[in-house]
């Protein structure tokens, strides 16, 4: 039972990651694929932040009333990753808008069909 509780967070992360991966792989709509990528990304963030949690600790802001803090290093990495994630999302959406202007659709199979016809 303690083993399950100690690993539950990681399993939630895996489930979220797989939902994201499934959306990316199985759905043909490009915007939905990007949303799936975002879900995948957030699950990785959650994994890092779960690793940084220290039992009985507090947020890593120094104060003489506390001695135990969460690990600040993963927090820094994930802060960077969130912002980079938005940059990639916006790039992906720009590509989708371009594809829609060129093909008139954002469904993967219709794009393939048009490519075959040419």
């Amino acid at each position: 039972m303690t083993f399950v509780l100690a690993h539950l967070n990681y399993w939630v992360v895996v489930v979220l990651m797989m939902i994201g991966l499934y959306i990316v792989v199985s759905r043909g709509n490009l915007i939905k694929k990007i949303v799936g990528l975002n879900i995948f990304q957030t699950s990785v963030f959650l994994l890092y932040i779960s690793l940084a949690k220290v039992a009985g600790g507090t947020a890593p802001i120094a104060d003489e009333r506390f001695t135990v803090y969460a690990n600040p290093l993963p927090h820094v990495l994930i802060l960077t990753a969130i912002v980079v994630g938005v940059a990639t999302t916006s790039l992906g959406l720009a590509l989708v808008v371009r594809i829609r202007e060129a093909y008139g659709t954002i469904e993967e199979d219709e794009i393939d069909l048009q490519d075959d016809e040419e």
């Binding site: 915007i31 969460a70 927090h75 802060l79 969130i82 912002v83 938005v86 999302t89 989708v96 808008v97």
Partner: peptide, 25 residues
């Protein structure tokens, strides 16, 4: 999970800017 800095970045950037970008797209 004690990650307050990450939380407000996620709320501002993930819930805010991403959604605006997506609606724009």
């Amino acid at each position: 999970l004690d990650a307050v800095d990450v939380a407000f970045t996620e709320a501002a950037v993930g819930a805010g800017i991403s959604t605006v970008l997506m609606v724009g797209a």
